[in-house]
Design a protein around this nucleic acid. Structure first.
Length: 207
DNA sequence: GTACGGATAGTCT
DNA sequence: GACTATCCGTACC
């Protein structure tokens, strides 16, 4: 049913690359103490066990442990020492694969997202005269969407996406054309076309 | 509109 | 001690 909370089984129904495409058009919802925010997933990247760009490519460590959990586990990692990236673990338990969520099209809680994304006053790309970033820039990038959605590190290794404060809803309408290409910002494995996004959607981080 | 330098910290070798 | 890869702010066109 369109718009329904997705059961945990959804995440184990597909292999990682298929899941990365199935997630496009789904709505990520966070019911935080500050209020509800949500956005439609418009851009994802798949990270596979045999893929050198995958955090779980090398041996199993404490940091990547959640990646080996059941499909639907949340994996949040720190990048550049300043930003977080939000991933949904995929494939069978014991396999270290995940889908990185790279961009959202905001659907609810816009004002709250703007508050969370406030940067210091001044001129910057995508910033309106009022000091708020534009709608287009709110969730256009993995670090930005984590900030806008208010996803904290306590969500790391959360066991469920359904029935909790952070969950997904099935697409209201099937996404239009899906395009794939090289993943963003990585060196190793850059030749693998594991990035998927909704064609011509302006909320995608890179066309 | 594009280009690039700086900030930053956890993880593993 | 090496390695990692995003956002912001300034510069410039």
């Amino acid at each position: 049913m369109p718009g329904e909370k997705l059961p945990l089984s959804f995440f184990s129904d597909y292999d990682t690359r298929t899941l990365a495409q199935k997630l496009l058009g789904c709505e990520l919802v966070h019911e935080s103490p500050d209020g509800l925010t949500s956005g439609m997933i418009v851009e994802t990247e798949a990270y596979l066990q045999d893929d050198p760009a995958c955090h779980a490519f090398n041996r199993r460590t404490t940091r990547t442990e959640p990646m080996y959990g059941i499909a639907g586990t949340v994996y949040v990692y720190l990048i550049y020492g300043m930003y977080q990236c939000f991933n949904i673990v995929s494939n069978a338990e014991g396999t270290g694969e995940a889908v990185l969520i790279r961009a959202l099209q905001p659907t609810a809680g816009i004002e709250l997202m703007e508050m969370r994304r406030l940067v210091r006053p001044g001129k910057a790309p995508g910033m309106s005269p009022t000091g708020k970033v534009t709608l287009k820039e709110l969730c256009r990038g993995p670090g930005k969407l984590v900030q806008a959605m208010g996803i904290e590190r306590d969500k790391h290794n959360a066991t469920l996406l359904s029935g909790d404060t952070l969950y997904l809803r099935s697409p209201v309408a099937a996404p239009q054309a899906i395009t794939s290409g090289p993943r963003v910002g990585i060196n190793v494995g850059r030749e693998l076309p594991y990035r998927y996004y909704i064609k011509d959607n302006i909320f995608v981080s890179k066309g």
